[in-house]
């Protein structure tokens, strides 16, 4: 029987000054940093740091499908593989993919698919590999956000980006962007993602309990947060090119 220090849940998730344990206000996001083109070999890639979450996403495709029987004659397929490293969590995770990883892969694939024109690429596959190097709550949202960036970086025609965030309830208060500990010790968790071309929800899960009024509140909180993250995504996608433009014009004048 292994003996391990348990990560203990605190009694209260708010400090005396009304801020959250990591010093944030209720609607404040954790610091987010994104970058594209981080994996040389991939057709498209992106890296994201969202609080303590550190996630890589890489896209390969369109390419021939392995195993071949999965290929569809009339359309391409999108496959998403969300994985966590053994050391990304408190207790060492087993190296083989678990049920949770498979479910999240599916949820993310369903979320991304409406963005693409898969019917244009029959018999091929697009593969999105998401690797969570360090996890601290909200990884499925962070993974969805970074996967969209990787797809855009690969130059795969897509209707828009997609952005995701989790809102939740801790100590009876509604908050945005749950951290790992808030996720575990909190009362409710609602991860959601928006596809910007139609501004509709493309990923939605919920665990906990809420009444109708709270539901409305939840969604409006999410919408504000999503716009904020979307801006970071856009900047990350353009940054690489703008920097080169500036470097070049600076050298000329």
């Amino acid at each position: 029987m292994p003996l391990i220090i348990k990560d203990e849940y605190p009694e209260k998730l708010f400090r005396d000054d009304g801020k959250r344990l990591d010093g944030r206000d209720k609607t404040e996001l954790r610091p987010i940093k994104m970058e594209v083109g981080v994996v040389e070999n991939a057709d498209g890639s992106a890296y994201l740091e969202w609080g303590n979450n550190k996630i890589f996403a890489a896209v390969y495709g369109p390419r021939e499908v392995h195993p071949h029987h999965l290929a569809k004659p009339d359309r391409g397929i999108l496959r998403v593989f969300y994985r966590m490293t053994t050391y990304s969590v408190f207790e060492r995770k087993r190296p083989a993919p678990g049920r949770r990883e498979k479910e999240i892969s599916m949820v993310i694939a369903d979320c991304l698919e409406p963005l693409l024109f898969l019917e244009l690429y029959p018999g091929t596959s697009f593969e999105v590999f998401i690797e969570v190097m360090d996890a601290d709550g909200g990884t499925r949202c962070a993974a969805t956000t970074v996967a969209a960036l990787a797809l855009a970086d690969a130059g795969i025609p897509m209707k828009s980006l997609v952005t995701a965030v989790a809102v939740g309830k801790i100590d009876d208060e509604l908050v945005v962007d749950l951290s790992g500990i808030e996720d575990k010790a909190g009362q409710a968790d609602l991860p959601c993602a928006i596809t910007w071309f139609n501004e509709e929800l493309s990923l939605l899960q919920f665990d906990g309990d809420m009444n109708l009024k709270q539901m409305e509140e939840f969604l409006s909180l999410a919408k504000t947060a999503l716009s904020e993250i979307y801006q970071i995504q856009l900047d990350a996608l353009k940054k690489k090119y703008i920097e080169i433009q500036e470097e070049v014009s600076g050298g000329n004048s």
């Binding site: 498209g44 855009a152 970086d153 690969a154 130059g155 209707k159 828009s160 996608l237 090119y241």
Partner: peptide, 24 residues
């Protein structure tokens, strides 16, 4: 009209194109 790619916007007569910067 929206863009499908990361690229440069170009207006030619009354067509709007996006010249892609990445792609296959």
């Amino acid at each position: 009209i929206i863009s499908l790619n990361i690229g440069l916007k170009q207006t030619k007569k009354n067509y709007i194109n996006v010249i892609p910067l990445r792609g296959f």
